[in-house]
Nucleic acid binder design. Sequence first.
RNA 1: UGGGGUAUAGCCAAGUUGGUAAGGCAGCGGGUUUUGAUCCCGCCAUUCGUAGGUUCGAGUCCUGCUACCCCAGCCA
Length: 553
Amino acid sequence: MTDSVSRPTNFIRHIIDNDLNEGIHDRVATRFPPEPNGYLHIGHAKSICLNFGIAKDYEGTCNLRFDDTNPEKEDIDFVNSIKHDVQWLGFQWQGKERYSSDYFEQLHSFAVELISKGVAFVDFSTQEEIREMRGTLKAPGSNSPYRDTPIEENLAHFEKMKNGEYAEGECCLRAKIDMSSAFMCMRDPVIYRIKFAHHHQTLDKWCIYPMYDFTHCISDAIEGITHSLCTLEFQDNRRLYDWVIENITIDCTPRQYEFSRLNLEYTVLSKRRLIQLVEDKHVDGWDDPRMPTIAGIRRRGYSPASIREFCLRIGVTKMDNMVEMSMLEACIRDELNSSAKRRMAVLDPVKIVIENFGDDEWLDAPNHPMNEEMGTRQVPFSKELFIEAEDFRESANKKYKRLVLGKEVRLRNAYVVKAERIEKDDDGNVVCIYCSYDPDTLGKDPADGRKVKGVIHWVSASHALDAEVNLYNALFTVPNPAAEEDFASTINPESLVVKNAKVEPSLSDSEPLQGLQFERQGYFCKDPSSSTDHLVFNRTVELRDSYARVNSL
RNA sequence: UGGGGUAUAGCCAAGUUGGUAAGGCAGCGGGUUUUGAUCCCGCCAUUCGUAGGUUCGAGUCCUGCUACCCCAGCCA
């Protein structure tokens, strides 16, 4: 995947190219900085591919840093799943993973430095008072009565904060900047707050925790990050990022650049909504194949390479965007088209009996139509088979290229059969189709030159394995569920359709998550929960289907 | 006149110093095909949010509008 596809270029790479050319930097260092408060999703993949991709292409480094400054929301389970997902995507961070909490000691010292310089103070105002004094978007704020507390007193107060002598919420440390700034984040932002909370890394060592704006820039500087990439909503925060770096004594000046986050049609990518889907049991968990989480997409059958390719194709800009699902689907189809072994599975079985057929035969069937190196497998052919119910009609127009009463059709990898008569139940449903076959059509066209237009898939009734097949459709019925008043009300009731299918016996050997194509149906993979007693397959994505498209009009 | 951002096709997105609109997805038409798949061929922006201006020449420069997104957590 390489030369034909244009190399990624974007405004961030232009900036880096320029920095390198101008000698502003002689190396590139990035970082991926998730807060361990949830599972990674496809939106994070965009950031991961951006940061690790740049490090790779510029022969630089990329750190994995957990932004763990809010112990109340974070959990060690999340750090483990995040590490696992980043590696699964195919990336390895520089050295050991980092934690913002690794720097709590240094962060504290820098806070003391700010207080000593008279640009930070301990505020005993209540949270409500601070909010009121902040002003509004159009009206300037007002100074806190604690703003001019002498430096020595602030130092003493902060020491007491650190020693747990004040209650949560009783006071906080604020940077002294400008209460009339047009940037709300510059109106004396809180940089340390009191939390008597257990931290997954530092345990009970601290009862004061630094805020994001104070922590992130310093962590970047400590790690020698050159280009700190984050999403658009942090654009205003950049002023505070730069202010902190300028006001402390540190010899590194990382720069922050912002890009737009990913939005994908027919799903949601905000942590809050994802949590709701799981907690309200709209899905089976974080790894439900309908979820846009890395865990969910993985279980759905997407490969790391296909997700990386997707991130390459969508690009990186500052434009708000809403990417169509077809973009993601095209990526996995491209990969699976060349890599997936072909198999046959009948999702809605109806029986056919080939009356003039004798003993069972095992036929050779190629694993891939275009790649002989992928070999063949044996499929049992017998007198009684299952075909797809929708592949038979008593009568049909010429556009219908499947089995029709009195007409012929090709059974994939096998013979040409002709439907002679049918048997129906009391409700008029076809329960059995009696056919005849032409013994001279295995691997070749009829000798007399008659044309058989259709090809349908099948499985031997006596050899077929029972399998649960999960068909997944869009989780939501509207392109942008997040814009709804109640997004949960737009959940697609048919996002999961379970089929009791009949599959060819070779499928018992397939590896979990290994991509397969059920011919004429789509790409599937065996679910990790699948067992010999209970085979389970998940549909990754359908095949393109121009017939269905024309027919639906 | 709070501030910060963004406007190129249905979607994503190139477009370095002004030189005459890449590519991908989707779609449409045709060919091949034992998957209505794949593959192959062809089509798909006289115009870059909009109105002016500068210029021989503007998506690129200037001015005025318009639309949308973000900011008033002791969240990140």
